[in-house]
Design a protein around this nucleic acid. Sequence first.
DNA 1: GTAGCCTTGAAG
DNA 2: CTTCAAGGCTAC
Length: 997
Amino acid sequence: MSEQNGPSEGPGPGPGPGGPGWWPASQSWKTNSCTAASSSSTSSSTIPDSSASVSASCTTTTSSLATTTSATSSTSCCSSTPSGNGPSGTITAARSSETGKNVSVTTINVPPNQDMHDGKGICKYLTGQNGVTVSVVSSCGSVLGCGNANVASTTAIGPTGTTGGSTGTQSIGIGVNVLSQNTADDDAEDSDVEISKIDFRGVNLRTKKKRDVSGSQSGEKIGDAEVEDGNVCYDGNDASQQQPERPMSWEGELSDQEMSSNTITNQKMFVLSQDTHEDTSMEGVQVCGPSPGPMEQKFPIKLEPDFQSNPRFTFGSFHETGLPLVHGQQIQQQRNIENLEQTQQNDLPLLVGKLLGGYNSSTPNHSPVLNPRHHLTKHSHTRSQVPSPDSAIHSAYSVFSSPTQSPHAARHSALGTGSPVPSSSLSLSRHSFNNSTSSLSLSLSHSLSRNNSDASSSCYSYGSLSPPTHSPVQQPRHPQHHQHQVAQGSPLHLPATASPVIAHHYSSSAPGSELSPEGHTATDDQEDCRIPSAPSGISTRQQLINSPCPICGDKISGFHYGIFSCESCKGFFKRTVQNRKNYVCLRGAGCPVTVATRKKCPACRFDKCLNMGMKLEAIREDRTRGGRSTYQCTYTLPASLVGSPASNIANDKLTTGGNCSPAPAGNEHHYPPRHHSNHSHKVQVVPQLLQDIMDVEHLWHYNDNDRMTGIQNAGMNPTRNNDTIPLLGVRSSGGSGLENDNTDSSVECSSNGTTGNGNPSNRRDDRSCSSVSNVGNEQCAASISSNSQINNTNGNPTQHPDFLSNLCNIADHRLYKIVKWCKSLPLFKNISIDDQICLLINSWCELLLFSCCFRSMSTPGEIRVSLGKSITLEQARQLGLATCIERMLAFTNNLRRLRVDQYEYVAMKVIVLLTSDTSELKEPEKVRASQEKALQALQQYTIGRYPEMPAKFGELLLRIPDLQRTCQAGKELLSAKRAEGEGSSFNLLMELLRGDH
DNA sequence: GTAGCCTTGAAG
DNA sequence: CTTCAAGGCTAC
C-alpha cells in the first residue's frame, strides 16, 4: 500500500471495500464511549440461533386517568439467528435511568457505494403508545431476524445487561451495537458518553484509484475483501472478516425522538429477520421485479376499489397486519393455524370493535375493522383460506408478491404460508376517537416502520447533485438554469441528499443543463438551486464561505464532504468515519453544537454533520488523496445563511425556487418549519386545507408530554435480562417518567454487544440507556443495533420480558399517536367514528411505512430507521430483509425523484388514510368526499408550487400503490419465512404480538 | 481527540 | 497552471 495506513487509530482491518460497501460489510466498528467504555470494544455478540419460540403477550391498559401496563411474556422457543457480528452499528439512545440522561447512540450506516440487492429481510417494529385516554391492550410480538444469516438486531437491554454472550460473529452482521455508556462518570452535564459505532457503509471508494494495487491493502476491495489497514481504519473487530455489519436498527415508526424520549420506552423494536431464503419467497412474490427499482407498475392512481383493495388488503386485516388479537380468540388461533385464517379475520374485527367500543364483539364481522379495507371483505374468502401467518408482520409489510401480481394472488400466497401466528388485532375504541375520555384500546401487533415524520431537516441543503467535484458554489454556468430552478425550488429545503435521481431532476428542470457525471451541470444546477446568485461581485461561493459553518458556526473553510463547513468539522467528520467511531450521546442527542460546545458531544456533532448534509460516501475508503471526488453530494446552505441578510438573496431564490425540494424528512424533531423564510411564498401556494393538515402533523410525533405519559405507562418489567433484544428497545421497569429529553430519534440505548451480562460496563450502559426509569432499574433500551453483538440470554432476546413489554409499548405509542393525529385531521373529524376506525385500521401500516420512507429521502440507498440509523439494502440482504427494503428503497427513490416535500407528504398521508374503497365504510361517500378534498388540495399545491412538474400530482398518487405493495411485501416475506419453518425471531415476535401466551 | 495547516492529485 | 476537495501531519 502506498498509502498510509489509516489514522493512527487505525482500526482494524476493515471490511473490504469492495462490495457494496466496503465499509459496511466487514467493517469493524470502534466503539468509544467517551467516558467510559473502554470496554466497549467492539465485540460482537451473536444471538444464537435458537429456535425457540417465544411468545409473549403484553397488555397495556391505560385508563384515562391511570394507566397500567403489564407485560407478560413467555418464551417458548424462539430461534433467532445470530446476527452478524460486527460492528454494525445502531443508534440508540436511551436515557439512563440513573443519570437521567439520555443516551443516544448513533450508528451510521454507510451505504455501500455499490448497490446491494438481494436483501432479504424485513425489519419491523412495533411501536405503540399509550395515551392517557387510551387504554391499550396489546399483545406484541416481534420478530427477530430470521434467516440464516445473521440477524442483527438487537436491543438491549436489560438491566443486566444485555449482552449475552456475545459471540460473535458472524460474518454479516448487521449490527447493532450497543454502546457504551457512561456511567458514573458522566457528569451530568458533561457526561457525554459517546459510544461510537458507526456503520460506514457509505464510504466511498474512489473509482479511480490506482491504488488498487496498494489497495490490496488498502482495501479496496471488492468483494468482501476488505482492506484493513490501509484503508480506513476500522476498528476492527472484525475486521474484515466476519464481522457483522453494523447493526441496523430499524425503528419503527417511532421517530427517533419518540423512541428516545419515550420513556416508557425508549424502546425500539426492530425486528429483523435474516433469511437468505426469504428472498426466494419474496421474490416469488415480486414478480415484477425483484428490484423495486423504479416501480414501473402503476396501479391506477385512483384508489379504486380494486386497486386499493389490493394494497389495502394488507391493512385490511389487522390479522395480517399482525395486530394482536385480543380475547380468547388468540388462543384459538395459535392452536389452530388453520383456524387462524378465519379467526384472524374475525378476530381483528372483534378486537377492534371491542377496543373501539364502537363495535361490539358480537358484530365483529360488521365492524369495519373486521373487514379491513376494501376488498378484504370482498375477498375475504381468500383470506380465510390463507392463514395469515404473521399477521403482525404481515400487516406491516404485506405485499403482493409482485407488484404485478394481483393482490389477491399475493395474498394467497402470503396466507398460504400460513403463519402460525395469529394476526394481531388492533382495536380502537370509538370513544377514544371521539373523546379522549373514553379509552381507546389498541392492540397492535406490530408496526412496521417507525414513523418519522420528522421530516424536516433542520438544514437547508441545496440539493445538489452535482458531484463534489464542483463546488456548488462555483459560478453558475448556466444562469438561465439558475433562475429557472430558483423559481421552482422549494424554498426551504433542498433534499439533503442529492441522489442521482435528484440531480436528474435538476437537470431536467433546467433545460440545457444536464447533469453530467462529473456534475458539471449539476454544479450549475446546484448553484442555481442552492446558491443564490451572488449579489454584486461576490461569488456565491464566497458568500457561503463567509457564512458560519452549519454545524458549529465556525468559519467555513470550504466545501467538505458535501457541505460547506469549517475545517474542524471537516476533520471531525473524517476522523469519525475513518476511525469508525460510534459516539453515543447520553443526554439524549439534543446537545447544542457550537464552536464552544462542539467538543463536548461528538455524538451530537456527528449527527449534525449528517443532518446538515455531510456525506459518508465522501470519505474515501482507500484514502487516496487529491483529485476530485465523484460522489454525489448535497450542498447545504448554512443555516445562518438562511435568513441572514447575506443570505437573503439566496433564500429568496431558494424559497421560490426551484427544484430544490424541501428537505426530506429529516431528523428530528424539527418540524417542518411551516413558515420559513419562504413563508410568504408558501402561504400563497399552500392551500388552507394542506396547511391545516400540516398544523396537526406534529401530533404524529412524540412530544415531551407523550413521552412522559409513556413513561408512566411503562413501568413494567422489572426484570431485565441481559438479553439484548434485537431491535427492540427495552424500557425500564420503573416506569418513571422519562425525562428524556431526547427527542432524538436515537433514543434507544444501546448497549454494546460486547459487554456481556454481568459486565459492569454493561450495566452502566444499561443504566444510561434506560431512559425510562429513574428507578433503579436500568433498562436499556435495546438498541436496535443489531450488532450481532447482541447477546441474548439464551439467544433469544424476545424471551426477555422487557422485550415484550417494550414491543407493546412501542406499538401502543405509535398507534396512539396515529390515532391522535387522525382525530385532529380536518377531514377526518367529520367522519363517523366507525368509519374512522375502519380507515385507520386499513391504512396505519402504509402511514407508518410512508413516514419511514419519507424520512429516508435524504439518504439514498438507505432506509432510515431513525435518525442516524439506517439500513442499506446490503444489510437488509444479510438479514433477509432485502425484499422489503428494496421496495422501500424504491418507494423512497420515487419520493426523492419526485421531490416530495412536506406538504405533499402530509397530504398523501391523508389521502392514504381516507382511501374509501373498503366496503366496510358506513358512509363511504363522506369519506370519498373528504379524500377528494385532500386530493384537490394536493393537486392545487403541486400545480402551484411546482408548475414545472405538471404531472407531479399524478405521479404522487401513483406512488400509493407502491406503498401498499411495499407493506404487502413485508407480509409476504414473513409468511415465507414462516413457511420455511425458520424459527426465526419473526415467529417469536409474532407470537409475542399475538399475546396468546 | 481536536483542529489548523500541509500535501496530494484529478479536473479544468 | 490553477482550483479545490480529500487525506495527512502534528501541536495542542
